[in-house]
Design a protein around this nucleic acid. Structure first.
Length: 188
DNA sequence: TTGGCGATTGGCT
DNA sequence: GCCAATCGCCAAT
Protein backbone atom coordinates (compact mmCIF):
# COMPACT_ATOMS: atom_id res chain seq x y z
CA UNK A 1 0.00 0.00 0.00
CA UNK A 2 1.50 3.37 -1.07
CA UNK A 3 2.58 5.79 1.65
CA UNK A 4 1.51 8.83 -0.37
CA UNK A 5 -2.06 10.06 -0.84
CA UNK A 6 -1.88 10.70 -4.59
CA UNK A 7 -0.12 7.41 -5.25
CA UNK A 8 -2.78 5.64 -3.22
CA UNK A 9 -5.54 7.23 -5.28
CA UNK A 10 -3.96 5.72 -8.41
CA UNK A 11 -3.18 2.45 -6.70
CA UNK A 12 -6.80 1.92 -5.68
CA UNK A 13 -8.06 1.93 -9.28
CA UNK A 14 -8.89 -1.65 -10.19
CA UNK A 15 -8.98 -2.90 -6.58
CA UNK A 16 -12.09 -4.59 -5.18
CA UNK A 17 -14.37 -2.93 -2.62
CA UNK A 18 -16.22 -5.62 -0.70
CA UNK A 19 -19.16 -5.19 1.67
CA UNK A 20 -19.39 -8.20 3.96
CA UNK A 21 -22.80 -8.93 5.45
CA UNK A 22 -24.53 -11.88 7.10
CA UNK A 23 -26.41 -12.62 3.87
CA UNK A 24 -23.29 -12.53 1.70
CA UNK A 25 -20.97 -10.14 -0.10
CA UNK A 26 -21.51 -7.21 -2.44
CA UNK A 27 -19.06 -4.93 -4.20
CA UNK A 28 -17.04 -4.32 -7.32
CA UNK A 29 -13.95 -2.89 -8.96
CA UNK A 30 -12.96 0.69 -8.19
CA UNK A 31 -12.96 2.74 -11.40
CA UNK A 32 -12.76 6.33 -10.09
CA UNK A 33 -11.01 8.05 -7.13
CA UNK A 34 -9.95 11.51 -5.97
CA UNK A 35 -6.97 12.44 -3.79
CA UNK A 36 -7.35 14.96 -0.93
CA UNK A 37 -3.75 15.44 0.10
CA UNK A 38 -2.04 16.94 3.16
CA UNK A 39 -2.76 20.69 3.35
CA UNK A 40 -5.35 20.54 0.56
CA UNK A 41 -7.85 23.39 1.05
CA UNK A 42 -10.55 21.24 -0.56
CA UNK A 43 -10.02 18.42 1.93
CA UNK A 44 -12.04 17.84 5.07
CA UNK A 45 -8.85 17.62 7.13
CA UNK A 46 -7.81 21.14 6.14
CA UNK A 47 -9.26 22.90 9.19
CA UNK A 48 -7.87 20.37 11.62
CA UNK A 49 -9.17 17.46 13.65
CA UNK A 50 -12.86 17.40 14.62
CA UNK A 51 -15.30 14.74 15.80
CA UNK A 52 -16.52 14.16 12.28
CA UNK A 53 -13.20 13.84 10.45
CA UNK A 54 -11.11 12.03 13.06
CA UNK A 55 -10.85 8.92 10.85
CA UNK A 56 -8.86 10.97 8.34
CA UNK A 57 -6.25 11.51 11.04
CA UNK A 58 -6.09 7.84 12.02
CA UNK A 59 -3.87 5.07 10.65
CA UNK A 60 -3.74 4.43 6.91
CA UNK A 61 -6.36 2.27 5.28
CA UNK A 62 -9.38 3.07 7.41
CA UNK A 63 -12.78 4.32 6.26
CA UNK A 64 -13.86 7.94 6.64
CA UNK A 65 -17.61 8.11 5.98
CA UNK A 66 -19.63 11.33 6.10
CA UNK A 67 -22.99 12.72 5.01
CA UNK A 68 -23.07 15.41 2.33
CA UNK A 69 -25.97 17.75 1.51
CA UNK A 70 -28.02 15.86 4.08
CA UNK A 71 -28.61 13.30 1.35
CA UNK A 72 -25.64 11.15 0.41
CA UNK A 73 -22.84 9.34 2.21
CA UNK A 74 -19.29 9.47 0.92
CA UNK A 75 -16.58 6.84 1.39
CA UNK A 76 -12.91 7.77 1.79
CA UNK A 77 -9.77 5.81 2.60
CA UNK A 78 -7.44 7.44 5.13
CA UNK A 79 -4.08 7.69 3.43
CA UNK A 80 -1.38 9.04 5.75
CA UNK A 81 0.23 8.08 9.02
CA UNK A 82 -1.58 8.65 12.34
CA UNK A 83 -1.91 12.33 13.20
CA UNK A 84 -1.76 13.49 9.57
CA UNK A 85 -5.09 14.20 7.86
CA UNK A 86 -5.56 13.13 4.24
CA UNK A 87 -7.64 10.69 2.26
CA UNK A 88 -8.85 9.27 -1.02
CA UNK A 89 -12.51 9.57 -2.05
CA UNK A 90 -13.94 6.51 -3.79
CA UNK A 91 -16.21 7.89 -6.51
CA UNK A 92 -17.39 4.88 -8.47
CA UNK A 93 -17.19 1.11 -8.79
CA UNK A 94 -18.06 -1.40 -11.46
CA UNK A 95 -20.54 -3.72 -9.70
CA UNK A 96 -19.50 -7.36 -9.84
CA UNK A 97 -20.59 -8.94 -6.54
CA UNK A 98 -24.05 -9.09 -4.98
CA UNK A 99 -25.68 -7.14 -7.78
CA UNK A 100 -29.24 -7.95 -6.65
CA UNK A 101 -28.47 -6.59 -3.18
CA UNK A 102 -27.27 -3.36 -4.75
CA UNK A 103 -30.32 -3.13 -7.00
CA UNK A 104 -32.59 -3.38 -3.97
CA UNK A 105 -30.65 -0.71 -2.09
CA UNK A 106 -30.68 1.66 -5.07
CA UNK A 107 -34.16 1.02 -6.41
CA UNK A 108 -32.89 0.95 -10.00
CA UNK A 109 -32.24 -1.92 -12.40
CA UNK A 110 -29.49 -0.75 -14.74
CA UNK A 111 -26.08 -2.03 -13.75
CA UNK A 112 -24.52 1.22 -14.89
CA UNK A 113 -26.61 3.27 -12.44
CA UNK A 114 -25.92 1.21 -9.32
CA UNK A 115 -22.65 2.73 -8.11
CA UNK A 116 -21.71 5.49 -10.57
CA UNK A 117 -21.05 8.39 -8.18
CA UNK A 118 -19.85 8.51 -4.57
CA UNK A 119 -23.32 8.80 -3.02
CA UNK A 120 -24.81 6.06 -5.18
CA UNK A 121 -21.90 3.77 -4.37
CA UNK A 122 -22.55 4.14 -0.65
CA UNK A 123 -26.28 3.62 -1.08
CA UNK A 124 -25.69 0.49 -3.17
CA UNK A 125 -23.43 -1.03 -0.52
CA UNK A 126 -25.43 0.22 2.51
CA UNK A 127 -22.50 2.31 3.75
CA UNK A 128 -23.22 4.95 6.41
CA UNK A 129 -21.57 6.54 9.47
CA UNK A 130 -21.64 3.21 11.30
CA UNK A 131 -18.75 2.16 9.06
CA UNK A 132 -16.72 5.29 9.86
CA UNK A 133 -13.32 4.14 11.10
CA UNK A 134 -13.64 0.58 9.76
CA UNK A 135 -10.34 -1.15 8.91
CA UNK A 136 -10.38 -1.64 5.14
CA UNK A 137 -7.21 -3.73 5.04
CA UNK A 138 -8.66 -6.96 6.39
CA UNK A 139 -11.83 -8.91 5.69
CA UNK A 140 -14.80 -7.56 7.61
CA UNK A 141 -17.99 -5.55 7.06
CA UNK A 142 -16.14 -3.34 4.57
CA UNK A 143 -12.75 -4.03 3.04
CA UNK A 144 -10.58 -3.62 -0.03
CA UNK A 145 -9.07 -6.62 -1.81
CA UNK A 146 -6.76 -7.01 -4.80
CA UNK A 147 -8.43 -6.65 -8.16
CA UNK A 148 -9.18 -9.67 -10.32
CA UNK A 149 -8.04 -8.02 -13.55
CA UNK A 150 -5.93 -5.14 -14.80
CA UNK A 151 -7.76 -1.81 -14.53
CA UNK A 152 -7.06 -0.64 -18.09
CA UNK A 153 -5.68 2.81 -18.89
CA UNK A 154 -5.76 5.15 -15.88
CA UNK A 155 -6.29 8.83 -16.71
CA UNK A 156 -6.43 11.96 -14.57
CA UNK A 157 -8.58 15.10 -14.49
CA UNK A 158 -9.75 17.92 -12.27
CA UNK A 159 -11.82 16.89 -9.27
CA UNK A 160 -15.61 17.12 -9.35
CA UNK A 161 -17.90 19.37 -7.31
CA UNK A 162 -15.35 21.41 -5.37
CA UNK A 163 -14.64 25.14 -5.36
CA UNK A 164 -11.24 25.35 -3.67
CA UNK A 165 -8.12 24.00 -5.43
CA UNK A 166 -10.46 23.18 -8.27
CA UNK A 167 -7.81 22.95 -10.99
CA UNK A 168 -5.51 20.30 -9.51
CA UNK A 169 -5.40 17.06 -11.49
CA UNK A 170 -6.19 14.76 -8.58
CA UNK A 171 -9.02 12.66 -9.96
CA UNK A 172 -8.20 9.26 -11.43
CA UNK A 173 -10.44 7.07 -13.55
CA UNK A 174 -10.46 4.17 -15.98
CA UNK A 175 -10.56 5.47 -19.52
CA UNK A 176 -13.61 4.31 -21.40
CA UNK A 177 -15.42 2.72 -18.45
CA UNK A 178 -19.17 3.33 -18.49
CA UNK A 179 -19.15 3.02 -14.69
CA UNK A 180 -17.19 6.26 -14.19
CA UNK A 181 -19.18 9.33 -12.98
CA UNK A 182 -18.74 12.97 -13.94
CA UNK A 183 -19.29 15.10 -17.05
CA UNK A 184 -18.15 13.70 -20.40
CA UNK A 185 -15.51 16.38 -20.87
CA UNK A 186 -13.65 15.11 -17.80
CA UNK A 187 -13.79 11.49 -18.94
CA UNK A 188 -12.01 11.63 -22.27
C1' DT B 1 -27.25 28.87 20.17
C1' DT B 2 -27.35 29.77 15.36
C1' DG B 3 -27.06 30.12 10.35
C1' DG B 4 -24.56 29.28 6.14
C1' DC B 5 -23.02 25.75 3.53
C1' DG B 6 -21.36 21.36 1.29
C1' DA B 7 -16.14 16.01 -2.20
C1' DT B 8 -24.54 14.94 -4.54
C1' DT B 9 -28.51 13.25 -6.61
C1' DG B 10 -32.76 12.94 -9.21
C1' DG B 11 -36.41 15.10 -11.43
C1' DC B 12 -37.92 18.49 -14.55
C1' DT B 13 -37.41 21.88 -18.57
C1' DG C 1 -28.74 22.44 -18.06
C1' DC C 2 -31.01 23.99 -13.77
C1' DC C 3 -32.45 23.54 -9.15
C1' DA C 4 -34.54 21.93 -4.83
C1' DA C 5 -34.12 18.55 -1.17
C1' DT C 6 -32.17 17.84 3.41
C1' DC C 7 -29.28 17.86 7.61
C1' DG C 8 -24.94 17.44 10.16
C1' DC C 9 -21.14 20.19 10.96
C1' DC C 10 -18.66 24.02 12.74
C1' DA C 11 -17.18 28.96 12.99
C1' DA C 12 -18.90 32.86 14.89
C1' DT C 13 -22.00 34.99 17.94
Amino acid sequence: MPVDTVQLARFLIGKMIVRGLAQGEAGGRIVETEAYDIGDPAGHAYRGLTQRNRALFGERGHAYVYLIYGVSFMLNVSSETAGVGAGVLIRAIEPTLGVEFMRQNRGVERLRDLARGPGRLCAALAIDRRLDGADLCQEGPLWIGIGDQLPGEIRESKRIGITRAADSLLRFYVRGSVFVSGPRRLNI
